[in-house]
Design a protein around this nucleic acid. Sequence first.
DNA 1: ACCTGAACACCGTTCAAGT
DNA 2: ACCTGAACACCGTTCAAGT
Lengths: 200, 200
Amino acid sequence: MPAKKYHHGDLKNALIKAGVGILSKDGVGGLSLRKVAKKAGVSHSAPYAHFADKQALIAAISTEGFKHLYTELDAAVSPYSSDPRQQLIEGAWAYAQFATNNTDTFNIMFSGVLEKEKDYPAFVEISRKTFERVVEIIKACQDAGVLRPSPPELMAVSVWGQVHGIISLALEGQISHTVLDRFTLRDILLFALDSNVGRD
Amino acid sequence: MPAKKYHHGDLKNALIKAGVGILSKDGVGGLSLRKVAKKAGVSHSAPYAHFADKQALIAAISTEGFKHLYTELDAAVSPYSSDPRQQLIEGAWAYAQFATNNTDTFNIMFSGVLEKEKDYPAFVEISRKTFERVVEIIKACQDAGVLRPSPPELMAVSVWGQVHGIISLALEGQISHTVLDRFTLRDILLFALDSNVGRD
DNA sequence: ACCTGAACACCGTTCAAGT
DNA sequence: ACCTGAACACCGTTCAAGT
């Protein structure tokens, strides 16, 4: 059998994992390639054998984050295949949970830290796939009369944008205490979704 | 008359201005205290006479950004004192314009770069004031029957969140080409606002 | 193919010192 | 009060060299 490779054989994934760890411990500002290398037990220049530069590692971490988000979203929505309105609510809530439980990963995914996202095909692909999952939910809602007829992709951007924006403001501490004292984040999301879902 | 002070007498503001310049040229990742000092024509340690650390300079830049945003928002909305619906539309559009014309300032204001925003009273004050301006617009809309009755602050978070989220996703390159090929950012915002404004 | 160690040009921050 | 210059502990990135 092959003696275990130079190090543990899968440094690339070990670096991504170490990166996620550093990120959640020290935040976006505390994420450095040298710390990641140290945590993975290799020299500070070893990462360059697997990532072109720091941006490439960030892209890999963001891609993992998106995969995680997709999984959580899908798991939250799937049980309600016969109740589109509930899909919307639970999907939004799963998104909120992901953001609050993985704040720094969420920030790295959506806050301009990754500068040329189009250069990373895996990242583009999983974010496209996630958007398509949202579109599916929107279509189900429209078919059930829960959302008004309209181009589903347009409605998807509108609803996703709203959920995304409310959560972003919440993470940023930008939601006024006059609101937070009276409503939970879930209340706010439900209220916001109701605007789209229709009222009568 | 007093000989011009040690340098030009108002290094603090010169540093903020230099910071905004670096930011729009090199992005959030390219903003360093040493560059800012150099651009202002002082030694790399001079900024510490005016700012406790890099975060404090970032707070000052963010605060200036918020003041700018407030001014643009107010200017866009004020002409329509008799047309609340138009206030909503033009307010959202002013927000979008600010974000696209000052992407990096916008990112620094809303993307977790400023880590302890509560520690900077001027920042807290102007962001509070901006939110209150949004609430005013929302109230005018509710009084005119353009928005459904509800706690105005809650509606303000919902609508602001939506506008903020759509713009954030747009800046991040996260809006699908299947949408962007057919709709402008303004179209998307109008569609989104319509969800709240009511339909019949 | 995968990793190391020295090297370079940058950082943020501190501190003694100068006016 | 306001600023400088040396110093320290960090960065990202490159490159010759080792297995």
